[in-house]
Each structure stands twice: as structure tokens, then as C-alpha cells.
Amino acid sequence: MTVENGQSTVDSQDWPLWEVFVRPRRGLAHSHVGSLHASDAELAVRNARDLYTRRQEGVSIWVVPAAAITASSPDEKDAFFEPAGDKVYRHPTFYPVPEGVEHL
């Protein structure tokens, strides 16, 4: 990403997003813990290990490209969701963030 004259452009080289699943202990299923950026799968697993198991929270890690996930509606009974776009983390709409002065 570069910033020129106050205008920003997002490079195509930005690393893709990966979803991370961790098996906390033997006998339990992998569950989603969050996401991270990495240039490829090998590095993604590596980064996931450093980031999401710093305190020995897992015995096994899966990483999945976020773009490869197809989602259903969040809840079969609750038929309310954005009809457009079926990628979990890549909503088509980008909402510009206003200048804000807020405490932490």
C-alpha cells in the first residue's frame, strides 16, 4: 500500500487473508479462532502458530484462504443477511470511516 498526495492506493501485492482453526486439545474439533495475513499457506500456518498458540492453546492448526469459504446464512431460522456476496470476509461494500476523536 502506498500513500501519495494523500491519496491511497492498495497494491495488488497485499497478502491475502487466511482463516485460522485450532484444535485446542486432542479429542476436540478444530474451531475458528480468527484470521491473519500471509503470502502463502506455509507462512500462514507458521504465523498462525506464533499468533494463536503463543500460550500453548492448541495441538493442531488449519489455515484456509478466506476467499475459499462459502457461507450459508448465519442461522437457518434467521433469514436476514446481506444477499450479495457469499465470501465471509470480503463484503463488496467499503464504508469510509469518518474522522473521529474518541477515547480508547
Binding site: 500500500m1 491511497s8 497494491d11 487473508l17 465471509v88 463484503h91 470511516v97
Partner: peptide, 10 residues
Amino acid sequence: AETLGVSRAE
């Protein structure tokens, strides 16, 4: 934040 449709680069 990225689950809300913004990228980290942005």
C-alpha cells in the same frame, strides 16, 4: 475489523 468489510491495508 476485517469482518466488517475493510482491509488491514486500508
